[in-house]
Design a protein around this nucleic acid. Sequence first.
DNA 1: CAGATCAAAACTGTATACATTAATTTTAAG
DNA 2: CTTAAAATTAATGTATACAGTTTTGATCTG
Lengths: 252, 252
Amino acid sequence: MIRRKTDHTDIAEGPGPKRKRASRAGNLAEHVYTSLRRAIIEQALAPGTKLPEDSVGTSFGVSRTVVRSAIVRLVAEGLVVQQPNMRATVASPSLEEARAIFRVRRGLERMVLEELMSRLEPSHFAKLRAHVTSEEKAKRHAEPESIRLSGEFHLLLAQFTGNELLIRFVSEVVSRGSLILALYGRPHSSECAVNEHLALIEALEHGDLTEAARLMDEHLVAVATRGLLDTDIKRERSLQDILSAYRPAGEA
Amino acid sequence: MIRRKTDHTDIAEGPGPKRKRASRAGNLAEHVYTSLRRAIIEQALAPGTKLPEDSVGTSFGVSRTVVRSAIVRLVAEGLVVQQPNMRATVASPSLEEARAIFRVRRGLERMVLEELMSRLEPSHFAKLRAHVTSEEKAKRHAEPESIRLSGEFHLLLAQFTGNELLIRFVSEVVSRGSLILALYGRPHSSECAVNEHLALIEALEHGDLTEAARLMDEHLVAVATRGLLDTDIKRERSLQDILSAYRPAGEA
DNA sequence: CAGATCAAAACTGTATACATTAATTTTAAG
DNA sequence: CTTAAAATTAATGTATACAGTTTTGATCTG
């Protein structure tokens, strides 16, 4: 664990003068935020994992300032918790909290369906079906990927409403839902979800709001209950190790 | 508008050594966040007002670091908007956005009522009635105060659910609702709200969920439509001037 | 060897410095 | 005069320094 201040050289450094703008600058906080978020949702960072500002900073090659602002955001959306002078940690919701979150989620997704009616076009259905296809494809591979995609299906629906606030709220409950499944979910819990997504799409195509709402509700109850027994919490790993996979955000 | 870097002496300064811990330290960001939030909700900071980090900082006697983190939070909850390298400004939602927000709010408050049924106790009703009383009292005085109290009634209901997430979401839509009324609301628009609050309480006391839901819906529609014509936007004032009233958060 | 004690190390909270980018004003040209 | 370009000022993005707090770990005691 020797992480002296000298080794932030791995990204933004070098003798050359033109280093610096790894991602065109001005975006570092956003990038760290996004990466941490993904890492949490994909279960790479298990609930309870400590997030010391400078360790995270060195992982991404940025200063604490940047990490700090990312963490403030994550705390604001409940993915990370933090007490006054103490290290931030990945949230680890209790069963009670988990249930409360899923209740809110059910309400929000009902709203999504209501907003969606009479707004859905053929192109939307195409996208939904395409997404389900990729869900099916991922099902056989990685579990975290599968959970993430399953959540993104719901996010996609929300996005079709065009209601910014609703999108953000759904996005939050979906994220936290993933976190919860990571905590309490038993493996393969996302398997059957694909069929349920398909059934939902069909109800929407028929313009049957009540049926869609019923299916959605059933689906969410299923997702919520499917998981809540097995408390097989994930084992430890090095923070540096985990985050190294989330560093190179895309461009050279 | 001479606010040179030298005049942050107005608050945290002085020859005495023991200044510094105005509120026991560790809380500055929280305090600035809360204060700005209140200032926005009470219409002291009109939509569109610029919030340069160091001006705000000098107003509160803190550094940009602190202000920055407060602003990140406000941006996260939509009360403030900010583009990459540009000054943050108090959000100024369009009519379209305003309507979208109120739609979400209606859904959320319906959820509140559902969670509330069979959970309400006599003490709750007492508190609700007490709150309405103070609403009535404030009605004759300041308009901003009145708007704030009206919002807090809804927040109170949400708090009785004990559902943390729901509370936060309601809190956000209520805040933004206040902001919207500040922007588009005509004066005295909150007057009739008091009666509507009372009617709602009674329906709840009778355990009549559907009636309560109907009243709530009606109420919110009324609040939303009551305001949306007059575009009498507030005139300019000095930022320093406005914020000076939000400084001394309470303790000595 | 368990448990308390205290010092070192690790972190957070906050301020400040500096590089960059946006806003504004000045200057110059048409 | 009006408008465009350049220079100035203001504000943000990021890193770093330092004070104060928590955590860790080592040492001492029963």
